[in-house]
Simulated assay, not measured.
Amino acid sequence: MKRIYIFLCLSLILMPAVACSPTEPAAEQHDPAPETHHHNHTPASTQLDITFQSSPDHPGKNQPVELKSVITAEKDPVENAQVEYEVWKQGEQHEMIKASHQANGIYVATKNFPQDGQYHVIVHVTAPGIHQMINGSVLIGESQ
């Protein structure tokens, strides 16, 4: 009984480590030209460079606003990230908006903001082996 208990404890400890470890398809592990795929690999030790901007510069309420981020790792565009914008106005509900990948590490989403004021934005970027966030903001209407 003691052996079963030890085995179960070790299994529970090791399962998350195995489940969360990054994996690659076998074909890419032996790729003779890895430089052709370097944009799609983001080692866990890599720090991502994330930018955020919104456009137009001075949008009004209910006007479409483009939320845009450029994601790079070691100056190379990251083409395989999942990018979401967490958006909220002080004291209101947070909303998650998925961005779509355009090209060259550029990710874009569009949102109409219903009220004038300052909106907080957190850019969530998840790439293989890494999750990083940056803060930003969008001012809708006249400055207050």
Score class of each variant (00 low, 15 high):
1 M>K: 11
3 R>Q: 15
3 R>C: 05
3 R>E: 14
4 I>L: 13
5 Y>K: 15
7 F>E: 09
8 L>G: 00
9 C>I: 13
9 C>K: 10
10 L>G: 00
10 L>W: 04
11 S>E: 03
16 P>T: 02
16 P>W: 01
18 V>W: 04
20 C>M: 15
21 S>M: 09
22 P>G: 03
22 P>K: 03
25 P>G: 11
26 A>V: 12
26 A>M: 10
27 A>K: 08
29 Q>G: 07
29 Q>R: 15
30 H>M: 11
31 D>F: 10
32 P>R: 00
33 A>F: 14
33 A>L: 12
34 P>R: 02
36 T>W: 09
38 H>I: 10
38 H>T: 08
38 H>P: 07
40 N>W: 13
41 H>A: 10
42 T>F: 01
42 T>A: 03
43 P>W: 05
43 P>G: 05
45 S>G: 07
45 S>V: 12
46 T>W: 13
47 Q>K: 14
48 L>S: 06
48 L>H: 03
49 D>T: 14
49 D>S: 15
50 I>D: 04
51 T>I: 04
51 T>R: 04
52 F>V: 06
53 Q>P: 01
54 S>I: 02
56 P>Y: 02
57 D>S: 13
57 D>L: 14
57 D>H: 09
59 P>R: 02
64 P>E: 03
65 V>G: 08
66 E>K: 15
67 L>V: 06
68 K>C: 10
68 K>F: 05
69 S>T: 11
69 S>D: 06
71 I>R: 06
72 T>H: 02
73 A>Q: 08
74 E>D: 15
74 E>M: 11
74 E>Y: 07
75 K>D: 12
76 D>G: 10
77 P>M: 05
77 P>T: 04
77 P>I: 02
78 V>P: 04
79 E>K: 14
81 A>Q: 04
81 A>R: 03
82 Q>S: 14
83 V>F: 00
83 V>R: 01
83 V>L: 00
84 E>F: 06
86 E>H: 10
86 E>V: 11
87 V>W: 05
87 V>S: 07
87 V>M: 07
88 W>Q: 10
88 W>S: 10
89 K>Y: 09
93 Q>I: 13
94 H>Y: 12
95 E>Q: 15
96 M>N: 12
96 M>P: 02
97 I>S: 03
97 I>K: 01
98 K>L: 11
99 A>C: 01
100 S>R: 10
101 H>K: 02
101 H>E: 04
102 Q>E: 15
102 Q>V: 14
102 Q>A: 12
103 A>W: 08
104 N>V: 05
104 N>I: 06
104 N>W: 06
105 G>T: 02
106 I>C: 07
107 Y>N: 00
108 V>M: 09
112 N>F: 07
113 F>L: 06
113 F>T: 02
114 P>D: 05
114 P>Y: 02
115 Q>M: 11
117 G>I: 01
121 V>F: 01
122 I>V: 13
122 I>F: 05
122 I>Q: 11
124 H>E: 09
125 V>W: 00
126 T>H: 09
126 T>M: 11
128 P>V: 00
128 P>K: 03
130 I>N: 08
130 I>H: 02
130 I>M: 03
130 I>W: 01
132 Q>T: 09
133 M>F: 03
135 N>C: 09
135 N>Y: 08
136 G>C: 04
139 L>H: 07
141 G>V: 01
141 G>A: 02
142 E>F: 08
144 Q>H: 14
144 Q>F: 10
144 Q>P: 13
